[in-house]
Amino acid sequence: MIGLGVGLLLAAIAFMTVGAKGSWDFVLPFRGTKLLAMTLVGVAVAVSTVMFQTVTDNRILTPSIMGFDALYLLLQTFLVFTIGSARLAAVDGGVRFGGEVAVMVTFGVMLYRWLLIGARRSVHVLVLAGIVLGVLFRSLSSFMQRLIDPNEFQVLQDAMFASFNSFDRSLVWPAAGLLAVAVSVAWGLRRRLDVLLLGRERATSLGVDYRRTVGLVLVVVAVLVSVSTALVGPIMFFGLLVANLAYRIAGSHRHAVVMPAAALLGVLALVAGQTVLERVFAFDTALAVIIEFLGGIVFLALLVRGEKR
């Protein structure tokens, strides 16, 4: 944990200072906002993935794999399709952000409650349901994308990949506020989450109100994922990567250790990755591409090693 903290501090300093040219008055706030955005996304994705994996009792499913990213894409496409990019661009950033978060939280909570709280389902059924929903959302999106003007499509394409270079800077603080609330609720749930690791029956037997607790966890997860996605865009395998690294590193099952470890790892991966990207590759590629590449490999490795539960 201390090592992670130190590493993160070094990465943050490197990110803020390396290759800075020109006035510090410009560089510090400019990079500072970016750093804050990466911190928010890193924490949100890491914490939401750990919580989601605890309540679904598995280590390969994440909110994004369960169709959340596809839902975001569908929402963006639908907006461009119905309202049009020009009028959409005229909408106040804050209003649009708030609307997107509200819609995604509502849909996300409904979807997960339906999938997870009702009947008991095996992980395999959940994976399948996630894939089917993802395909459904993506097909609907691509159907609408075919119908819209090619220029509109270009606007839409920007929304398809997460980027820390082209997000709306005015949204960082409202997002930070929302995430702070969600993360503090998550922290308050940490001991009950530990008990949920034992599974539904044992948690009930130990006096945890399963439906209520899991319902609350899913709301927190939906808020975390929605805010981070609405801020920078979808990153599919990132959560999987940091959560599984955190389980290895933490050396404890307790969420009081695992959640902070995952959050630190998440932020560290984003900040270090972005520093390397900006200074070594000179913005030649997108950070999301690198993360998806590594995360995808981890996902496959977990599948092959048979850690299906």
């Binding site: 009792d57 598995n58 280590r59 001991r191 530990d194 008990v195 690791l197 034992l198 599974g199 044992r202 130990l206 006096g207 945890v208 099952h253 539960r309």
Partner: peptide, 17 residues
């Protein structure tokens, strides 16, 4: 069956929850 890796002591301590 358990998904997460717990020691006997961790498990028994859960009984005090």
């Amino acid at each position: 069956h358990l998904t997460s890796r717990l020691t006997v002591r961790d498990l028994v301590t859960f009984g005090r929850y």
